[in-house]
Amino acid sequence: MHKVLNNNVVIQVDESGRERVLMGRGIGFQLKPADAVDPAKVEKTFILDEGEAGERELRMLDDIPYPVIESVTRATDAAERSLGRALGRGFALAVLDHLQFVLERLEKGVRIPATSMPELRVLYAAEYAAATGMTASIAASLDIELPPEESVFLTMHLLNATRDEPNGTAALLFRRVQHVVTTVENGLGLRLDVNSPDYARFVLHVQFLLQRLVSRTMLTSGDTSFFEFAKHSYPASFEIANEVKAYVKAATGSALTDEEVLYLIVHIERLKTQLRSGHTGEPVLVSSAVNSLQ
């Protein structure tokens, strides 16, 4: 048996009593309870949640115009192909809920503030690319202009759907990377060039540093000569690295080794050189230390 929610959404009850949502353009038009659903019109299907959550999902599907549902469905399918994995029903519903909120605000001339979060492009390149594709696809499908920051919001939704980690782990790591980047920028008194290779290398280094800290595999060495050389030769970068060390200690309870601090100094010097010269040339310390420590 089935019931028509609207012209584009039909609720079918299976033999076990579960409600299955069938979506498709015109699937419910003039459909009577005794009529068979045309399978050719079914574009998407999923099982409803039970109880209050299921009722909320039904209200959302009834309230949101079908072109919006259709655009999100197509964009989600494309993202799944891009990432090579299923994103699940919850992802599409979360995007629908978010997008409808955005569209309602845009109609009123209200734009949701968001930072560009350039670290996302480095740390989660595949998810960011898929989110950017979704934003462009939805905008083209609805013939509207979506703010660029929608790619940031959709990337965060994708991370929630794809990270096989304890809930919030990816977000926590991301926030810590952001804090380290901000600490370095404040220490240098400049904003980093987020499109430079040195920036990408630095952000990835910070990510791996924090992951090594969690897994207790931090870099160590019995030779302190490079650390002492960097400490005395580049006092400004050493001071910034020490500020990062203090933040990491306060945030995680673990202290960075001298070897990890040395690598931070190397990257900070590289960033400083790039900012001063306008290119990615490396100071002598960078080439010497990196070659020796690999």
Rank of each mutant, 00 (worst) to 15 (best):
R191I: 04
L192N: 08
D193A: 15
D193M: 14
V194R: 09
V194K: 11
D198Y: 15
A200T: 07
F202W: 06
V203Y: 07
V203H: 07
H205K: 05
V206H: 13
Q207L: 14
F208A: 09
L209P: 01
L210F: 03
L210T: 03
Q211T: 13
Q211N: 13
L213T: 06
L213W: 08
V214Y: 09
S215D: 03
R216C: 07
R216S: 11
L219D: 05
T220R: 10
T220C: 08
S221M: 02
G222W: 03
D223G: 08
S225R: 10
F227H: 06
F229A: 09
K231C: 10
K231D: 04
H232I: 08
H232S: 11
Y234G: 01
Y234K: 04
A236M: 10
S237T: 06
S237Y: 06
E239D: 03
E239N: 07
N242W: 01
E243R: 13
E243K: 13
V244H: 02
V244W: 02
K245E: 11
K245A: 15
Y247D: 04
K249A: 13
A250H: 05
A251C: 05
T252H: 07
T252L: 09
S254G: 04
D258E: 15
D258N: 14
D258S: 08
V261T: 03
V261L: 03
V261A: 01
L262D: 07
L264D: 12
I265N: 03
V266Y: 04
H267G: 00
